[in-house]
């Protein structure tokens, strides 16, 4: 999260590379890593690309790897990204770090890469092809934890409004499944309405404003990130009391929360995946290239913000971006070690 951590991580990387042959790290200074990214049109993806550049540029400068180039497709389409992966194979990259447009659609291209001896590490948007590595997020747990938090805050329970993401995307199904299972375990809560906000503030605002007039009192809104500010705007336009809206670490959401906290002591929590997960994938790819034994399935930790670390997190969040952590080689090794168990 901090620059010092970053510097320390890079220093550590250099240390591990050059001073610790006992860990059997092979030299990766001539290896080239590419980032294949399917979409860049929202603040999360922008932060993801910025983090990638901020971590990989020093790594390249220090000779940890020879190159770490980022490529983004224009149209978020499977065919386009498959063609991009084929180009990256032809260009002779040693590893491809992949945020995929589809879990299955790219399997053919990924298999081609593996057959050509290219390491493929997928993250966030993961692929199911067995030859690739997966850095997955436990979205189910994220949804479940939202309700657990609410159960602590509102022991007497009440009515919930659920804002879902983009219909048909696996992330949306997983988070929602977590929320619904948790509501089954905490029966003092009832989900009285569910709308799709497509992880966009404007869409969420519109959907919530539409359903709100027909709903009873709402004590809390469970969300998926990127929709909390829109929900708050929709509630603010009515004479209803502001419910607890779970936030998703976006700068506009945290700013609004901090304003409300200062004005009336508003309390909530915020949880999402740090866009810097791209840097975790980078270090994992580097470790695989260095000859380390890395399990195929790894899990990313969440980034959660609570009442007491709100201001600090907000200050560290780039305006317009998402609360972020950039991962170090050390973090990657910890995640790999956890994955081995």
């Amino acid at each position: 999260m901090t620059k010092t951590a970053l510097v320390a991580g890079t220093a550590l990387a250099a240390l591990v590379m050059f001073a610790a042959p006992s860990m059997a790290q092979e030299d990766t200074s001539d290896k080239r890593i590419a980032l294949s990214n399917n979409y860049a049109g929202n603040s999360w993806r922008q932060a993801m690309l910025t983090s990638w550049a901020r971590v990989t540029e020093p790594a390249v400068a220090d000779g940890v790897v020879a190159a770490a180039d980022a490529f983004t497709t224009a149209e978020n389409q499977v065919t386009e990204q498959a063609a991009q992966i084929q180009n990256l194979i032809l260009q002779g990259y040693d590893a491809i770090v992949l945020n995929a447009a589809s879990p299955e659609g790219l399997n053919g291209a990924v298999k081609e890469a593996c057959d050509a001896g290219v390491i493929v590490v997928s993250f966030d948007g993961i692929v199911t092809e067995p030859c690739a590595w997966r850095i997955a997020v436990d979205f189910y747990q994220m949804g479940y934890d939202e309700v657990v938090y609410l159960a602590e805050k509102l022991p007497e329970g009440g009515n919930l409004l659920e804002i879902r993401g983009l219909a048909g995307v696996f992330v949306d199904d997983e988070i929602s499944r977590g929320i619904h299972d948790a509501v089954a375990d905490y029966p003092q809560f009832t989900i009285v309405g569910s709308v799709h906000g497509d992880w966009a503030q404007d869409v969420a605002q519109q959907a919530v404003a539409g359903i709100l007039p027909s709903l009873p009192d709402i004590v809390a809104v469970v969300t998926q990130g990127g929709d909390g500010y829109g929900a708050a705007q929709a509630f603010a336009a009515t004479d209803r009391e502001m419910p607890i809206i779970i936030m998703g670490n976006r700068h506009d959401e945290l700013t609004w929360w901090a304003e409300q906290k200062a004005a009336n002591g508003y309390e909530t929590m915020s949880v999402s995946i740090a866009p810097g997960v791209s840097t975790l994938a980078f270090w994992v790819a580097q470790q695989i290239l260095a000859g380390q034994d890395v399990p195929k399935d790894l899990v990313v930790p969440f980034l959660r913000i609570d009442q007491d670390n709100l201001e600090e997190s907000l200050a560290n969040t780039e305006p317009g971006g998402v609360a972020n952590v950039e991962y170090t080689l050390e973090d990657a090794q910890a995640v790999i070690a956890a994955g081995r168990q």
């Binding site: 049109g41 929202n42 922008q46 966009a200 503030q201 605002q205 705007q233 506009d252």
Partner: peptide, 16 residues
């Protein structure tokens, strides 16, 4: 007008 209404412009505001 949409940016004024919804509390600011976002990159994906025109999507739908």
């Amino acid at each position: 007008l949409l940016a004024s209404f919804s509390g600011g412009a976002a990159l994906n505001m025109g999507q739908e």
